[in-house]
Design a protein around this nucleic acid. Sequence first.
DNA 1: CATGGTCAAGTGGCA
DNA 2: TGCCACTTGACCATG
Length: 320
Amino acid sequence: MDIKSRLGYPCINVYLQETEGISTNRHMIQKTFEAQKSTNEGVSKLALQNVKDLVKIIQWNERNGIKFFRMSSNIFPWMSEYEITSLPDWPLIEKNLQLAGKLAMQYGQRLTYHPGPFNVLASQSSFTARKTRRELNQHSQIMDVMGLPATPWAKINIHVNTTQGGKEAAAERFCTQFEKLDPNTKARLVVENDDKASQYSVADLYELIYKKIGIPITFDVHHHKFCSGNMSHEDAAKLAVSTWPSDVPAAFHFASTINHEEPEKMARAHADWIYDEVTDYGTGAWIMCECKAKEVAIQKYIREGVTHSDYVEKYELIKS
DNA sequence: CATGGTCAAGTGGCA
DNA sequence: TGCCACTTGACCATG
């Protein structure tokens, strides 16, 4: 399978959103959520629209040769506050989730999750850790309804997200909490290297997480620039790939630095476009491209190769 | 109806 | 101390 068929994008299809309003990110602010809480009819309607549009995005991906897509955690707004199966529109929501999953499997598409940075399994706060367990289990529950494999093919990707008490102690809390997750959540959970030197490099994750609980490591090519653990990109990539089961292809994350577009901003922020060659170091890994221009960035890269800096000015003209 | 201020959550780094 | 950045900009009150 050519590397171009293994590129993916996260959460938003820019084209469908701008031309047809197709989106899986419909949300509501807290005040609105509270106002509808007695029936949850508001969130139910949003979730229904979101899952219907998920089907459309999967179909669009099939028509456009894209096999890799990260689902938005916002499909069910305020999910941690209710049981998804008790929403008034659940029967219809369930049908659409089943259809989305069936189509994805039929097309050979890989669907994944990346729950947000508020999920801190290793938190010193038992409240936060418990809430995180619940939310991770809910992500997995949705994948179960969709009929996606209980393997890291359908990965649920998180960071350790804290170093409080020291990296070793936090990693230990992570492993302890991991054991309390639902079986299918455990089967899907993978852990990603961080973008700050004080946090977890691929080598750290290998030693402190993989060796204890055996979950795979997602290699984030961009983050590795800021937290290398003294490993080259290629060595880190290969070490990460070695943690995946032999029958499930590994996943990488990729982004170029925003400094190509806005030199004054923090280097670890992500660019709209792809300015660096995307490589899997010969490993066969699938690569999630976290570019702000989403699927448009992938299509442009596949068509034209890396973006050159003069494109930014032209793009600004097109937009205006 | 367009737009700008504001928005659940945890954590760490930086001005 | 307060903002930015990260999984994803989207909601909604105001003019």
